[in-house]
């Protein structure tokens, strides 16, 4: 066993008493602090859990992309009836109450136009919140769109405003423009669209010459109700 003997091994030495006590005190303080700091330990866990949760949610979202749940339309004042399963295909836009039954409205429109859809159609939600109907049942999935599942509160409110605004302008298209603008402003505010603006800047343009009356357009991208120059039909 002499091969595991070390003749030069120094004798044991203890840590000097004062320093041993200092180290003991530091250690005891650390132990006590680590037991008091359970909120910190939770935070440490959250540092691990939060990124983990983000990863899991992202993965689930990615996995569920093909099974996207139906969505509610924010733009319900019109329905786009697409002639093929493509957002670039010819589109007929139907207003009025078409949002109540988009598929029925488009099938009826196609039938009246002499187009055959075979009775198959699907209503989908466009990325801009509008309703799009295509002549095939699996169109939403193949185009990566969510199926249309109804109209949101916002969509209903805006459709109601739009209905009122159209009536308001159509009642007298040729009255003073300032009155029309003021009425539209009040209507917007009453329906809760205070952030929207009323734009009648088209009346100053050269092309508006001879168009003294007003029509209406909605510019969702700019959140603007546009008062469009319109001919005075009373003169004819």
């Amino acid at each position: 066993m002499s091969d595991l003997e070390f003749g030069q091994l120094p004798p044991p030495r203890s840590i000097p008493g004062e320093r041993l006590e200092q180290r003991r005190i530091l250690l005891e303080r650390y132990v006590a602090a680590s037991l008091r700091s359970s909120p910190k330990r939770w935070w440490r866990r959250r540092r691990v859990l939060l990124p983990g949760t983000v990863v899991v949610v992202t993965c689930l979202a990615a996995a569920g992309w093909g099974l996207r749940p139906g969505g509610l339309a924010d733009r319900a004042s019109a329905v786009g009836c697409y002639s093929a399963v493509s957002l670039q295909s010819d589109t007929a836009v139907i207003g009025g109450a078409a949002a109540a039954d988009p598929v029925g409205a488009c099938l009826e429109m196609w039938r009246r136009s002499g187009l055959e859809s075979g009775g198959d159609a699907a209503a989908c939600l466009r990325d801009d919140g509008g309703i799009a109907v295509f002549p095939r049942k699996d169109a939403c999935g193949s185009l990566g769109l969510r199926p249309f599942a109804g109209v949101s509160d916002l969509g209903r409110r805006f459709a109601a405003f739009q209905h009122d605004a159209v009536s308001l302008v159509a009642a007298d298209r040729c009255r003073p423009r300032a009155e029309i603008v003021a009425d539209l402003r009040r209507a917007l505010d009453s329906y809760g669209f205070s952030s929207w603006s009323v734009d009648d800047s088209g009346f100053g343009r050269p092309w508006a010459r001879g168009l003294p009356c007003a029509s209406l357009a909605i510019d969702h991208d700019r959140s603007a109700v546009v008062v469009v120059p319109f001919p005075d039909l009373r003169q004819k």
């Binding site: 044991p12 030495r13 840590i15 041993l20 003991r24 250690l27 132990v31 006590a32 037991l35």
Partner: peptide, 23 residues
């Protein structure tokens, strides 16, 4: 939560650990 108890463990074994660390 008794930090002093861990302090007693330290006092009891610090010598052995210290010797091993030196070796």
């Amino acid at each position: 939560g008794d930090g002093a108890a861990f302090g007693r463990l330290f006092r009891a074994h610090a010598g052995v650990v210290h010797s091993y660390c030196f070796h």
